[in-house]
Design a binder for these strands. Sequence first.
DNA 1: TCATTTTTGTACCGTATCGCAATAAATTCG
DNA 2: CGAATTTATTGCGATACGGTACAAAAATGA
Lengths: 209, 209
Amino acid sequence: MKEKSARGRPRQYDTKTALGAALLEFRRRGYTGTSLDHLSEATKMARPSLYAAFGNKRAIYLRAVAQYVEDSAERRDGALFDEPSLAAALDGYFLALVAIYSEGDDRPLGCPMLSVITGEATADPVIGAELFAALGRTDARFRDRIAVARDEAQLPPTTDIDAVAEMLSALQHSLAQRARAGTARPELERIARNSVALILKAAGAGTAP
Amino acid sequence: MKEKSARGRPRQYDTKTALGAALLEFRRRGYTGTSLDHLSEATKMARPSLYAAFGNKRAIYLRAVAQYVEDSAERRDGALFDEPSLAAALDGYFLALVAIYSEGDDRPLGCPMLSVITGEATADPVIGAELFAALGRTDARFRDRIAVARDEAQLPPTTDIDAVAEMLSALQHSLAQRARAGTARPELERIARNSVALILKAAGAGTAP
DNA sequence: TCATTTTTGTACCGTATCGCAATAAATTCG
DNA sequence: CGAATTTATTGCGATACGGTACAAAAATGA
């Protein structure tokens, strides 16, 4: 499926690595705080090349975050759905999430969406819609996993799927927030484990066989 | 305790209203997206006056948010601690919180801290420290309230105070995130009520008399 | 070899930005 | 009234910003 460069001067950049470098820059500096010059330096692409390849700054961010979502989707869904035990699945999922949120040489960089574009959501409707959609996707994924666990009788049939899923989403939002504020990884992992246990207890896990 | 203006030309602005207008502008545009010109227009103070009164942009934000924290502390603590029933206290607290987060003509403006400076926390260490401290204060307030409820036997003596407080903080973080993404107020209120109920259930409220 | 195609590099434009200097206006004290 | 003091206003200067025009460079095809 690789596009074979047919003609013309070959491009010196690789799209995936460029978008990865761009996202890292956004995570470091924030959305508005990242200029096209910063992106140009980080990706080693000249500004016109950036523009030709992806479009304006917002398009660069959206492409970069879309690649992040796509690349991490497999790991996320794997952690959530390949593990039969709900408790183990959630533990694995959130530990992987904390690992991502804790990336960063100096301090944790947080979530590539929640920690980066929250400030812009009110000023830029496109960004706001993107953020809203991302929240909805996370909710839906948790709902699906909870429904599976309920169908497998790991949770009572009366389980309020929406409420439990919203608590799991809240944990994710909170971990992103705390990571961005500088909370260290072991503390995030502790919070994740404790919270998952508490949520499962509230959901009635292990109550009715 | 009012400073009586002793000499010189009297100032035309009121500090509190100016800081309130500045905070509103920060919430609308985000931290980096708000320029001194925006603040100047919003507060009806000339840029040099802003500079003389508060200092640079970061100082303006910190002063504005400090005033917000101070002004809302009374209502917050009142909702939390004046109500004897833990369930009623938490419901009241989070409904008041949702009311604040839902402010805004066009769309909800979210939290004056969580929704505004999260993106800058990695780039500006002072902002990062401020955010970290704010998270710690919220945690501590919830811990205190849970401890009171446990001492009054509204919760079992074995209650894990830290874990429950962290879940309540997570709910707060999540409501801020969802509000900023555009979730409407009734939905936020529904989530708040359901989550409080679930957390109390997990904490064992009403289990042991 | 030479035209064609695609990417790269340089330079530029209009605007916005922060921070401040210099001056004008409004008030109190003597 | 005049001196002193505090605030308000105007304007400047240097930089950074997003976005683009244009020509040079590097490849392919005939």
